[in-house]
Design a protein around this nucleic acid. Structure first.
Lengths: 217, 217
DNA sequence: AGATAAATACTCCTTTGGGGGTAACCCCAA
DNA sequence: TTGGGGTTACCCCCAAAGGAGTATTTATCT
């Protein structure tokens, strides 16, 4: 292995926290913070360009949140180790984070030494989870993501209707024919409903919907 | 809380291992092994009667295996903390264990001190996972283990694997990244699998698959 | 040794999907 | 009456998906 420093990038919209984190990381000779960003939008071009060894990513950010940023980063082909950092100790996003390619999920209120320890472990290629997070993960496994249909209520009738067609596997064109509207309009509805549900594609929407209604069409 | 000793029960079909474990636990003043069993069948009546604070349960046993024993115990209303113990460090049963009510999943080849530490943490109500297990758990979230019902048998392993990714909503590109193959290759597999299943799109495939396995990860 | 199947990775091509925007129309509430 | 949400419909643009073909390598089964 090399004796080179490991490059670290911080993404967090709280300057103070970045400062603190930077100080913490400065305790280690072999870590170097090479970039900081205060938003996902700002971070993505930086990350793709610099390709740091490790990215520490705040989960709770204004605008594009941590998960969205994570998705986008992986989507752009960023292969850095990415560790999510969050305040909440009962955050169910852990499942989302891990399944979207995060290499760790740490809590901001962890003991600094432990945090540093975890960060170093993450750099060495390991998956790191804060203690409290392990609970959440286990709980998530026991209660397999029964999502709140609250999100369904945010959809308009038309959007809901179109979602259910998507969940049957229909293409936009077929849905349009079914509803006697143009396929362009269907695309508009699909676009809106994906945005509202925070999903990336009709496939995700279909799976999500099928799980909502307990499957079996 | 009380100053009483915590009662522990050992279930393992290797007498030698039970002996070793007992010695290890004897190092702690506040732990007391109140029962041992060499099989699940033997263990269940004992456990229901004694209701120990903690049960240490071997995963790999002859006859009724660890998971089956675990299920049966919970089924009988045993509320003890239950920690699974296993030899294999790449054991995918971790998901099964946790989702069936295990409070921990430890490896026999862990450092004894760490093992003891974990056991005590489990007794204090926490979920404990050996380090290597955390990896497996995370991986399980990314790569769903897929069942093989009748119609799925016509698919090759790779096709099957890719179908399960589709059912999670992943794009070809992301699947390719996950499997370390080119996205062109993924498209080939998708094409083949659609043809074999008589489906017209990945959305249909996703819905079909989710219905097959009853949804969820 | 030869055949076969699976997995890999290309090519070329067309259709589909999804994000951005603008804009009309209706209807209902502030 | 003005405003906003919902539905409709279009624009542009580009990425993703999927069909068809060829080809190499590895493994397995005669």
């Amino acid at each position: 292995m090399s004796e080179q420093k490991s490059s670290v990038m911080l993404i967090d919209d709280h300057p103070l926290l970045r400062k603190g984190l930077k100080q913490l990381l400065a305790l280690e000779d072999d870590l170097e913070v090479i970039a900081e960003a205060s938003s996902g939008a700002e971070a993505i071009p930086l990350a793709t360009e610099l390709d740091p060894d490790l990215i520490i990513l705040d989960l709770n950010m204004q605008g594009m949140d941590g998960i969205a940023t994570l998705k986008k980063l992986r989507d752009e082909g960023v292969t850095s180790r990415i560790v999510m950092l969050t305040v909440s100790d009962a955050d169910e996003d852990v499942v989302n984070a891990i399944s979207n390619g995060a290499d760790g999920y740490l809590l901001k209120d962890s003991d600094p030494e432990i945090l540093l320890e975890h960060i170093k472990r993450a750099l060495s290629g390991k998956m790191v989870l804060s203690e409290a997070v392990t609970q959440v993960l286990a709980t998530a496994l026991r209660r397999p993501t029964v999502k709140t249909p609250a999100e369904l209520n945010s959809l308009t009738n038309r959007e809901h209707e179109i979602l259910s067609f998507i969940a049957k596997g229909l293409s936009n064109k077929l849905i349009a024919r079914e509803l006697n509207i143009s396929d362009g309009t269907v695309k508009v509805h699909v676009k809106h409903l994906l945005k509202k549900l925070g999903l990336r594609s009709r496939v995700e929407a279909a799976v999500w919907m099928v799980n909502q209604q307990g499957g079996k069409v």
